[in-house]
Amino acid sequence: MRAQRKQCQVGSKYTKRYSEECKRDAVELVRSSDQTVTEVARDLGVSAESLRGWVKKARTAQDTGPLPGAARAADGRDEELKRLRKRTAEQVKTIENEKSDSLLREEERPVSTVCRSSTRRMRTTPSR
Rank of each mutant, 00 (worst) to 15 (best):
G45V: 00
D75L: 15
A41M: 02
T60L: 09
V111R: 14
R52D: 02
Q9F: 00
E80L: 14
S32N: 08
Q7S: 09
K57N: 14
R105T: 09
R105V: 08
E39Y: 08
R42H: 10
Q35K: 15
V92Q: 01
T94A: 12
R120G: 01
K99L: 13
E108F: 08
L81C: 04
A61L: 12
S127W: 13
A41Y: 01
D43M: 14
R42Q: 01
L29K: 08
E90K: 14
E20C: 10
R72F: 07
T124R: 14
C8Y: 11
R52P: 08
T38W: 05
A48M: 03
G11R: 05
V30G: 05
S100E: 12
L67K: 14
E107H: 09
P68C: 03
E39F: 02
R31N: 13
S127Q: 11
R77F: 02
S47V: 05
N97Q: 12
G53E: 00
G76V: 07
E39W: 00
T94I: 13
S127N: 08
Y18F: 15
V92C: 02
D75V: 04
Y18D: 01
R5G: 01
V10P: 04
G53P: 06
T125F: 04
T88G: 05
M1W: 07
S12P: 11
V30K: 04
R42L: 07
V55G: 03
D43F: 09
E107M: 10
A3V: 11
E108R: 15
S102I: 14
S12M: 06
D101M: 15
A73H: 06
G65S: 08
G69M: 01
D75I: 05
S100P: 05
T119F: 11
K16W: 03
Q9N: 00
L84A: 13
E90A: 09
S19D: 01
R105C: 06
V55S: 06
E106H: 07
K56V: 10
E21L: 12
C22I: 01
K82W: 02
P68A: 00
L29E: 09
S47A: 15
E106A: 12
G53N: 06
A70I: 02
L81Q: 11
D63K: 15
V30R: 00
D43P: 02
K6V: 03
L44A: 03
S100V: 13
K56M: 13
S118Y: 12
A48W: 02
E28Y: 05
Q62E: 11
L81T: 05
R87E: 13
S118I: 13
E98G: 06
L103M: 11
R2D: 15
S33L: 02
E21D: 06
S32F: 08
M122R: 15
Q7R: 15
E80Q: 15
S19F: 03
M1P: 12
T88D: 10
C22S: 03
R85I: 10
V111K: 13
E98A: 14
K86N: 08
R121F: 07
Q35N: 09
L81A: 10
S127G: 06
K57A: 12
W54I: 00
V10R: 07
R2A: 15
R83K: 12
S50M: 01
E90I: 01
L44D: 00
L81G: 01
L103W: 05
K57R: 15
Q4S: 11
R123K: 13
K6F: 01
R109A: 06
R42F: 03
R105F: 09
K13V: 10
D75A: 09
R52C: 07
R83P: 04
A71V: 11
S50K: 00
V114C: 07
K16P: 03
E20Y: 08
